[in-house]
């Protein structure tokens, strides 16, 4: 019974994820189709005559009902064919293949720093509650939290890239197609921007949940039983913090996946975010659709994993609610 419930829940959760992606695809498609401008004219350009445009429109299937166009497009997406860039005529998959990798690397490297740092800071502040460090922490983290990511980035560039010290490259320039980790120096400031704008948020939550756990009955009980404080924290308090942190982590990764747009723009990092901002400004519809959909897919998958892990790690939740 219990097993069935758990599997049932996961299947339902998967269903929601798939449904989400599908709805996102509809919204993205409709939104881009409603953008002004005519793809046929964009492709033909200056050689265009009205007849040629009419033929091209027919070739592209632009005269068909929107639903038919959507089904065709979505069918392509399912097999990894996002269509062609209006600007260059190149397949979208060629244009964004390496950009997917670049964005993933940026996110993963940032996450690898964010989680240990945020958890360590939060736990530390919770253990030394109301100590001098905690007080400093309580004042500075909300303040840091209030700074938008691009503000952090602008300040970092001035401090470490251009004006004050020239230590790190101010823009993420590296030869197209190369793996970004081969150029660790260019990653420093973009990663630092993402880290500094998310760690305070994570640390605040970790601190709050840790304090809550430390004050819970069973931890108090463990203390009364005379267990060493370290044992209390490691064995009794921390495991109870894992689930809230998982959920927070998913939120943070989701924010990162959206927040990379700003950071990539600021540092000219060649990822999906810059591909999207460029495509929006050039009205390259297929490219807009692909970039948005891929970033959305990343968020959906992150949330899915976090939720499944949450259920796996929380016995009492496996049967709850279903």
């Amino acid at each position: 019974m219990r097993l069935w419930n758990r599997h049932g829940w996961i299947i339902r959760r998967l269903g929601v994820a798939v449904l989400s992606l599908w709805v996102v695809s509809i919204v993205v498609f409709m939104a881009t189709q409603a953008l002004p401008g005519d793809a046929a004219v964009a492709i033909l350009g200056r050689q265009a005559t009205p007849e040629a445009v009419a033929i091209m429109r027919a070739d592209l299937g632009l005269n068909r009902p929107l639903v038919t166009q959507y089904i065709d497009w979505f069918g392509g997406v399912l097999v990894g064919d996002f269509g062609e860039s209006v600007g260059s005529g190149a397949p979208i998959s060629d244009l964004i293949g390496s950009r997917i990798v670049n964005t993933a690397v940026l996110l993963v490297v940032s996450a690898v720093i964010i989680f240990p740092a945020g958890i360590a800071l939060g736990v530390f502040a919770a253990l030394r509650r109301d100590g001098p460090l905690d007080r400093v922490f309580s004042v500075t983290t909300p303040a840091m939290n209030a700074l938008p990511a691009f503000v952090v980035g602008l300040v970092l560039v001035i401090l470490f890239g251009t004006t004050v010290w020239k230590i790190f490259p101010a823009t993420a320039l590296f030869p197209p197609g190369e793996f970004p980790l081969r150029h660790p120096d260019v990653m420093v400031l973009p990663v630092a921007t993402l880290v500094l704008s998310t760690v305070p948020y994570l640390a605040l939550i970790v601190r709050a949940t840790t304090i809550e756990a430390l004050e819970s009955d069973y931890v108090q009980m463990a203390r009364l039983k005379g267990l060493r404080p370290r044992t209390v924290v490691l064995v009794h308090a921390l495991p109870n913090v894992v689930v809230p942190i998982l959920q927070t982590g998913a939120v943070i990764l989701g924010h990162l996946a959206g927040g990379v747009v700003v950071v990539e723009f600021l540092f000219r990092y060649p990822g999906l975010g810059t591909s999207l901002t460029n495509a929006v400004s050039a009205r390259d519809l297929a490219l807009i659709q692909a970039s948005t959909l891929l970033l959305a897919a990343a968020i959906v998958v992150i949330n899915l994993i976090a939720d499944i892990l949450t259920v796996q790690l929380t016995p009492r939740l496996r049967t709850a609610e279903t």
């Binding site: 004006t163 490259p169 823009t171 320039l173 000219r268 901002t277």
Partner: peptide, 19 residues
């Protein structure tokens, strides 16, 4: 020839010696 879309990041690249 390195293409940029934002003028400020282009200037930053010049200032930090990347171009």
């Amino acid at each position: 020839l390195i293409s940029f879309s934002d003028d400020l990041s282009r200037t930053n690249a010049l200032l930090s010696g990347q171009i």
